[in-house]
Write a protein that binds this DNA or RNA. Structure first.
Length: 436
RNA sequence: GGCAGGUUGCCCGAGUGGCCAAAGGGAGCAGACUGUAAAUCUGCCGGCUCAGCCUACGUUGGUUCGAACCCAACACCUGCCA
């Protein structure tokens, strides 16, 4: 049976590690307590964090014990990014995000059994830490000349970096030492962009505790052209269903490139080697069937959301793509689809009160539904022949809907291009018989 | 605190009085070709009641018939000096 390290390697989840032979021996010798951290920089974790949670699952299944750290304190400081200084978020906001993220990560690890996971918050040990103690006990171990050599810092020397962000690495290193002391944690991993922060912890423990601990880094997932994988039209792919709907989430994975889909499957899918090899063959022989993409989207959506959400996302996709007749759908099916899409509820006017009440125009529907960011963009889409209402191409921006255009008397599905879909719901149909 | 340089559309970046909604590149969007893939080609890419109008070049005020471009003050960033 393959070791967990070999498994991770095969899945392409190992980008970097401290002495790998030593780590392999350590993992072999018995249950290891490991940690991975997530900083609250938004109300939800995102697609990129998912990779770390998956690694945590693999390790836990191999009998090791996860500590999932939510960065209540590091989130107040901000890990320096190459581009520019971050804006500090208010403490209450960060505290709120900590709670949300804590709830999210709990889905991915087991809290029972011998390798039960634990969620920790670094604010618990840094919140009350005195500055002088910090400088004496932690700062003393960090040569500034070495810190200046770090890539992120170097990239910021020109444009500037605050002392706050410059100090971030000390806090993360301190976290590792704290978890080492309190829980005997001897392995930390994270994304490859975290490597510097992670090894700083390894070094701090070596210097102040005289102990040798380990580290791993997962690779940054890229697209075929080398750019970062993880952004979509709407921006970041979030795990929170109110920020990225399960439908959009499913679509994101379904649209994976052929050249990369097998790589993503290895990372995200629980399927074993044989199953993935089979999907790789399918992608080569019958790429148009997109079996690998479907498997990928299925697996990740079920993992992050649920089987039911996955089923709904598939049903919605089938109805919306191609030129299927949306009129054939039952009202309940349609309602389900609409709820997955960006949509806008439009109150129907009371024809008795406003004799001018009219149904919206094509332009209205495209912009209200959110399919087009502005009316200008909607106009452009129509001019370019890329706008559809209920799967019918639109040519006149001012064309007004007729009552008959409303699916089940209320819904209009708007689409721009192939993939951008939204809906408008007319709240209640005006009683046309009011005046006869 | 002093001196010097900087702040342009999503990002980078040109523009130093009218021809500027602002070159060029990147990102992005649409169309064609396809397979909800990639590559390629074409078009688009501030907003709107869209042959016109409105808002925009850090902020505020000024000069001018006219300002992204000139002047003043302020804010922020960078460097050098204290």
């Amino acid at each position: 049976m393959a070791s967990v390290l070999e498994e991770l390697r095969w899945r392409g989840l190992l980008a970097n590690s401290t002495d790998e032979a030593a780590l392999a021996a350590h993992l072999n010798a018995g249950p290891v307590t490991f940690y991975v951290g997530f900083d609250p920089t938004a109300p939800s974790i995102h697609f990129g964090n998912l990779v770390q949670l998956i690694v945590a699952r693999h390790l836990q299944r191999a009998g090791h014990r996860p500590l999932i750290l939510v960065g209540g304190s590091t989130g107040l400081i901000g890990d320096p990014k190459e581009s520019s200084e971050r804006i500090l978020n208010p403490k209450e906001v960060v505290a709120d995000w900590v709670e949300r993220i804590r709830a999210q990560v709990e889905r991915f690890v087991e809290f029972d059994g011998p390798a039960a996971a634990l969620v920790v918050n670094n604010l618990d040990w840094t919140g009350e830490l005195a500055t002088l103690d910090f400088l004496r006990d932690v700062g003393k171990h960090f040569p500034v000349n070495r810190m200046l050599g770090r890539d992120v810092v170097r990239s910021r020397l020109e444009d500037g970096i605050s002392y706050t962000e410059f100090s971030y690495v000390l806090l993360q290193a301190l976290d590792y030492r704290e978890l080492f002391r309190s829980f005997g944690c001897t392995l930390q991993f994270g994304g490859s962009d975290q490597w510097g922060n992670i090894t700083a912890g390894v070094e701090l423990i070596r210097r102040s505790e005289g102990a040798r601990v380990h580290a791993l880094a997962t690779p940054l997932l890229t697209k075929a052209d080398g750019s970062k994988f993880g952004k979509t039209e709407g921006g970041t792919v979030w795990l929170d269903p109110t920020m990225t709907s399960p439908y959009a989430f499913y679509q994101f994975f379904l649209q994976a490139e052929d050249a990369k889909v097998v790589e993503y499957l290895k990372v995200f899918s629980p399927r074993d080697r044989d199953a993935i090899d089979e999907l790789a063959r399918e992608t080569e022989l019958r790429p148009h069937l997109r079996l690998a993409q479907r498997a990928l989207a299925d697996d990740v959506t079920v993992l992050v959301h649920s089987q039911a959400e996955r089923d709904a996302a598939v049903a919605a996709g089938e109805a919306l793509f191609g030129n299927s007749d949306l009129r054939a759908l039952s009202e309940s099916t349609l309602r389900g689809i609409v709820s997955e899409l960006p949509h806008h509820l439009m109150p129907a006017g009371d024809p008795g009160a406003t004799d001018e009440w009219q149904l919206p125009t094509a332009l209205d529907v495209l912009s209200l539904s959110g399919v087009a960011a502005s009316r200008s963009e909607a106009r452009r889409a129509i001019e370019q022949g890329g706008a559809y209402l209920n799967n019918q191409r639109v040519s006149d921006p001012e064309a007004r809907l007729a009552p008959d255009d409303l699916l089940h008397g209320r819904y209009v599905i708007a689409r721009r291009g192939k993939r951008t879909v939204g809906a408008v719901t007319i709240d209640a149909r005006p009683t046309a018989s009011a005046t006869g």
